[in-house]
Design a protein around this nucleic acid. Structure first.
Lengths: 172, 172
DNA sequence: ATACTCATGTAAGCTGTTACATGATTCT
DNA sequence: AGAATCATGTAACAGCTTACATGAGTAT
């Protein structure tokens, strides 16, 4: 059972506990967002597809008159998630960094302009560091693999901030 | 003049010298690929659009009976490239790392299985390091901004390799 | 001969975002 | 009363990859 990119994060989040599409979106935004984003436009249609495929089971669960549908994994969904987690295929890795592209083409710019690009780049990484730090305590309490990945993000973007600073010093 | 993502790399590559679509693809694959990829399916249609928009100028330049079309920047294209390079907008940054997502959801796996994921992740980063090292000498000779960005890639993925190794030690 | 590289291009399909629409509940 | 949050969903569009098609020149 080949899972779509969004299906991977949905199954993973649902295994952590019974979830609605809305809750999954909130969770993604405070945890995997920096290396695996998802939007409502992907989440809701994909939840329907996964239910049709028998990997998850939805149950209407309104709060008052407000509609709500919560999902749990079926045994097939549980197996599909494990199969993906244990698969040997080379995991996808994709990066798109506009600041780096600007830097690549900055050969004909002045020193000040190049410096400006590096500062933009540093600010970008710093913003991610700040965002991750603000949720670090919660993640640290949860501990385990969740916290490990957050640490990776924090350490990597901090490393990038340092790299930019060094670059700025060289240019000054 | 708002440039499409692919247009940015095309204009930048063409400013470095008169180029064909094929040459641009080769160049991208040995330079920006690790932070900004492009495929033929994007390159050729976009070259046509940029010519229609008056940012580049194409000239037929066959080698024997083999068709070939080489492009140069128009003054408008040159200005558009500079405008983008100097713009103040927050540069886009996007990362999609499947290994990290697996790690995030690895809470219910055994230690061996988690170790396997980290090793996959390390191999992934190591492959990029190897790829970049193989072109390092050429880039170092060219020097300047081109080499700086290659160094960033080399240093960042080397850092990631080290991070994985530490993680592996902790798990062993 | 045949395989590889040079060279251009398109069609189908997948993935994703953005913007919008709808409506209920809760907080100030 | 009005704003924010909870909650679901869709339509339009943007961007990209893959696979294929075509054909010429070059190296083995």
């Amino acid at each position: 059972m080949e899972l779509s990119p969004t299906a991977r994060v949905l199954l993973g989040m649902i295994r952590k506990g019974r979830r609605t599409g809305y809750e999954i979106k909130q969770l993604v935004d405070v945890s995997t967002r920096f290396f695996w984003a998802a939007s409502y436009g992907q989440i809701y249609p994909e939840l329907r597809r996964l239910e049709e495929a028998g990997l998850i089971e939805g149950e209407d669960d309104p709060t008052g008159g407000r509609q709500r549908r919560a999902y749990t994994l079926t045994p097939a969904g549980d197996a599909a998630l494990d199969e993906w987690l244990r698969s040997d295929e080379e995991p996808a890795y994709e990066l798109r960094d506009e600041a780096l592209l600007k830097l690549f083409f900055s050969g004909e710019l002045t020193k000040e302009e190049r410096l400006h690009i590096v500062r933009q780049m540093r600010a970008r990484h710093q913003a991610v560091v700040d965002g991750l730090r603000s949720i670090e305590e919660v993640a640290a309490a949860a501990g385990g693999a969740t916290y490990t990945t957050l640490r990776f993000g924090l350490d990597m973007h901090s490393w990038a901030v340092d790299w930019c600073r060094k670059q700025e010093e060289e240019l000054e």
